[in-house]
């Protein structure tokens, strides 16, 4: 029990720090992340350049901040799109049931069986790269997993007494779905969101790393990693800083999810 709280606490702390770091990176960075400087090429980490500089003399700390901002905004947009759509679809399927539910779930199963990176790559092959397309592709592909999660929880909640009581009291069906049941599915949804966040970060990073994700105008962590890998020998701190940022982002959300699941498992 104590260890689970520790998971949750550490995860929240880590995530808060990383989100702050990335949010600030969307608006302000200590240096212009794309400003070139011939004197600072391959500068090692120092007090002026916290994470050093890259092959063009750009400040890596600023670039990491900017990249983290892009990655985080994509991940949030994906969660918002996939989560909201999944929530509505799952809630309706779970509450209505029947043939429509069976059909939608069969479709969800089919989509969810595929590794999301593969499908996203294929979608991007058709739509072309870019931040907006990445969000759309990943967002749509995340709908099934959320829908399945919410539906399962709805099926469980639907049979509980408080729902039956509300129905007997003559509360409208849609109101039961969204006002009565939905808030009770939040813990499960929250744990799903942490997993979704991680998958979004990982998928975006992988795709952008492969050069099929974001365009150079808004570089994300994955895009920068493909740059950084080129001079792994001369400026390993670039790769290190980027990799570290991705890992901490994912680890933080992972720990939160772990903590929530452990807490639910304890029945508290």
């Amino acid at each position: 029990m104590r260890r689970h709280n520790w998971y949750l606490r550490l995860g929240c702390l880590l995530t808060a720090v990383m989100v702050m770091f990335s949010l600030v990176g969307c608006f302000w960075t200590p240096y212009d992340p794309s400003a070139l400087s011939s004197t600072d090429r391959y500068a090692a980490p120092s007090l002026t350049h916290l994470f050093g500089c890259d092959s063009l003399g750009r400040d890596i700390f600023s670039r990491v901040m900017q990249g983290a901002g892009t990655t985080l905004s994509i991940a949030f947009a994906v969660l918002l799109l996939g989560g909201t759509a999944g929530l509505v679809i799952g809630a309706l399927c779970g509450y209505v049931g029947g043939a429509a539910d069976a059909l939608v779930m069969r479709l969800c199963d089919a989509v969810a069986a595929f590794p999301s990176i593969l499908l996203a790559l294929v979608v991007l092959a058709v739509t072309g790269p870019g931040k907006r397309n990445v969000i759309l592709a990943l967002g749509v592909l995340f709908i099934p997993s959320f829908a399945r999660l919410v539906r399962g929880e709805f099926l469980r909640q639907r049979e509980l007494d408080y729902v039956k009581a509300a129905r007997l009291a003559g509360v409208r069906e849609l109101r039961i779905v969204f006002v009565h049941i939905l808030p009770n599915t939040l813990p499960v949804l929250l744990s799903g969101v942490t997993i979704g966040f991680n998958n979004a970060v990982l998928a975006e990073a992988s795709m952008s790393y492969l050069g099929i994700g974001v365009t150079p105008q808004d570089p994300s962590l994955g895009y920068m990693l493909s740059e950084a890998q080129g001079f792994l020998m001369r400026a390993p701190w670039y790769t290190g800083a980027l990799a570290g940022t991705v890992i901490l982002l994912v680890l933080g959300a992972g720990l939160i999810g772990e903590g929530i699941r452990a807490r639910m498992g304890d029945g508290t």
Binding site: S206, T239, A243, I247, V250
Partner: peptide, 9 residues
């Protein structure tokens, strides 16, 4: 928490 390609690097 580590993506495969970062592990690869």
């Amino acid at each position: 928490s580590i993506p495969n390609f970062i592990l690869g690097i």
